[in-house]
Simulated assay, not measured.
Amino acid sequence: MTIGSKMPKNSRKTGKNMPVKAYNMAILDDDSAEINMYGDVLMEAPRDYWTGERINGMYIAADEFLEDLEQIKDKSNITVYINSGGGDLYAGLAIYNRLKELNGHITTVNDGLAASAASLIFQAGDTRKMNKASNIMAHGVAGFLFGYYNLNDLNNMVKQFEAGNEAVVNVYAERMGVTYEEAQDFINGETWKTGQAAVDIGLADEVIETEEEDAEGLLDSLINKVSSVYGRQNSAVPAGVPQVANIKKDGGKKVKTTDELREAYPELVAQIEQEAADKGKMEGRKAERERIKGIEDIAGGVLDKALLNDAKFGEQPMSAAELSLSVMRQQASIGADMLNALEKDAKNSGADNVKSNPKNAEDDDPDKEDEEEKENEIKDLVNIVNGTKKGAF
């Protein structure tokens, strides 16, 4: 059962302003619950100025969070996973105080970042766990000023900042096991700590070790993989696969490697491997059907039936895309052969040895030839006359 879960991707199509929350609460069993907090911390959800509707976004609204918390507050074990850059101081303090007053055991886990107000929420855990690759950041109260202020306004603001810092220091001092003065020095500026460094100064209780897993971690991982084959939740395990809790209850020994797991529980490992192998076969058959169907869809455009048959059932079967590429290459090769044959025929025809005649077409005009002949006769007569005149002198 989940509480405050995120809106499904297609829910926007309904036209309703369904809330998207940056946290998720899940009831695991009768005694346990889990909270995932990923987003900025605000006192209340922001709303559209004109319509008054809630604006969706990645923020943890304290008013909504505390209302949803009522549904799991009686659980004996609550694990809170945090990845947040912080936000509103008093929203963070409200969530911190409410978590701290619950009767069950609270475990807070820093998944990536617990900064500012989120670092306060992290301190609410009876057990506070840091990952080796997670950061915690603490600092004093800060605010944004915009507008005009008189001296009294500024003095009042200073008092508010001092009160806020006092609340923050009280939280850190209590959880770190140090004096108020020591914790006060801690929030001067910003203090960043990673993994073991946060444990060393009392901001966390332990670092999560991931290098080795015990039997529960290994079995959980394997069972989850098999469960995912069937599209089930982690709590639903295929028939015949025993729950981890049952194995441990029956006196199962701890193992730290998959080989030791195989030796300790050979039947379980064999069943899990068989389930995975059967799933692989099913996926393989599905992929093969899809491949053949893709080829059938383009078969009408493939003239070379031998190529088509090889694509389906040959020693190197093809996908529809690979077959299409082969057909294109084949057509390109045929076109190149045709061009080469045409070029060869042209050379063999002797057309290259035919010389062009530079004489102008107008030189063959018979009328022009007659005119030129007449002009030559006139020139001859003129020369005769001129010659006679020259002889008279």
Score class of each variant (00 low, 15 high):
K253V: 07
K281W: 09
K248A: 05
K254C: 03
D278N: 14
V237Q: 07
N234K: 11
K249N: 11
L261W: 07
K256P: 00
G280K: 15
G252Y: 01
V237F: 05
T258D: 02
V269P: 04
V255A: 00
Q274E: 12
A236N: 13
Y265T: 04
V269G: 02
D250Q: 13
R232V: 09
D278G: 03
K279W: 10
V244W: 06
D278T: 06
P242I: 02
R262L: 12
A277R: 12
G251S: 00
P238T: 04
A270R: 13
K253N: 11
E273L: 06
Q243F: 09
E275R: 10
G251K: 01
D278W: 05
A264L: 07
Q271E: 12
I272F: 04
G240K: 07
V244Y: 05
D250W: 03
V241T: 05
A239G: 09
R232I: 04
N234R: 13
V244T: 14
V255M: 03
E273S: 10
A239V: 11
L261C: 03
A277Q: 14
Q243W: 06
R262K: 15
A276S: 10
V241R: 02
A277C: 00
K281I: 13
K279E: 12
G280C: 02
T258A: 11
V255T: 05
